[in-house]
């Protein structure tokens, strides 16, 4: 494994992939990251990347602007997403043509700074425009909760992006994990399965603490560099309960709480790890560490 910076010589005789460029038959790096080779394609993986959506991804975004027949949504990607008026679920669940009246009252559906969940419908191959849709009862405007932002690299594509925790309690806490790194934590209704809620509820202190616990456990997972999905979050929540650490003290003792989750996926990391990490760590202080 090699670490390169822009302009470093990478290799010869391969196909230049992402993060590289070709000059006079030689391949050079254009990003700071690690060199990654898949068969004949050589590429450089950077540490931070902007989120690249795929069709069908569940994403969470914030409305930036209301435009003519469409909304623009901040989705933590290389561009703002676009949500057309034709791609939303009209109240009442009616399937009808969007009339001029709907256009007039677009702000009644979503207005600026509203947080919505949706799905990627299509991505324009020419200019990369991201079209969204919320044509499902699962998606729509989000209320009665809060948003946290994490690095999207820690989030995988899962079967279900709506996870429920504290299910044995009378008030479970759920979160929608957007593939783009935005996570919405909210209090679901037990009776209706809809994520969409029509009115603002009064949330008790107990519930708020539980929401904070869930929030902190997700932050901890990001801190200890572990993927965020149902099992790892549950592991952190379990160890929080065992150690009886309060919500406010969770982030201080993140190492203890993240330990269990680390064991869970340690085997997975070791499989993917190509070389001994310890070796590189000692090399970093060594002047002879070869970059080129």
């Amino acid at each position: 494994m090699r670490i390169v910076v822009p302009g470093d010589y990478v290799d010869e005789g391969f196909i230049a992939g992402h993060g590289t460029y070709e000059q006079e038959g030689k391949i050079y790096a254009s990003l700071a990251g690690i060199v990654h080779r898949i068969d004949k394609v050589i590429c450089v993986k950077p540490l931070k990347t902007s989120f690249k959506p795929d069709i069908g991804d569940v994403i969470i975004g914030r409305i930036v602007a209301v435009e003519n027949k469409r909304w623009t949504v901040d989705i933590n990607s290389y561009q703002h997403g676009v949500l057309n008026l034709t791609n939303i679920n009209l109240p009442g669940g009616l399937q009808r043509r969007r009339s001029e009246e709907d256009k007039m009252q677009m702000r009644n559906y979503f207005k600026e700074n509203d947080i919505i969940s949706g799905e990627v419908q299509s991505i324009n191959t020419h200019d990369g425009k991201i079209n969204m849709q919320t044509r499902n009862l699962k998606y729509g405007k989000l209320i009665n909760g809060f948003l946290i932002k994490v690095d999207h690299n820690y989030i995988r594509r899962m079967k279900s992006h709506i996870l429920e925790f504290f299910q044995e309690d009378w008030q479970p806490i759920a979160c929608i994990i957007g593939t783009n790194g935005y996570i919405w934590i909210y209090t679901p209704d037990k009776l209706t399965q809809n994520t969409q809620q029509s009115e603002v509820k009064v949330i008790s202190k107990e519930t708020r603490v539980k929401m904070a616990v869930l929030r902190n456990s997700i932050i901890i997972l990001e801190k200890v560099q572990l993927p965020i999905f149902k099992d790892t979050i549950q592991k952190v929540l379990d160890s929080q309960r065992q150690n009886a650490i309060e919500a406010k003290d969770m982030l201080k003792s993140y190492e203890i709480l993240g330990k269990e989750a680390k064991y869970l996926i340690e085997s997975e990391i070791n499989l993917k790890k190509p070389v001994n990490l310890q070796l590189i760590q000692t090399d970093i202080n060594n002047q002879d560490f070869i970059m080129n």
Partner: peptide, 19 residues
């Protein structure tokens, strides 16, 4: 500068394996 970048990458190296 390169040393700083390298240190940063090595510190966060785990995140490369979850994509």
């Amino acid at each position: 500068m390169k040393t700083a970048i390298r240190a940063k990458l090595v510190k966060n190296i785990n995140s490369f394996y979850f994509k």
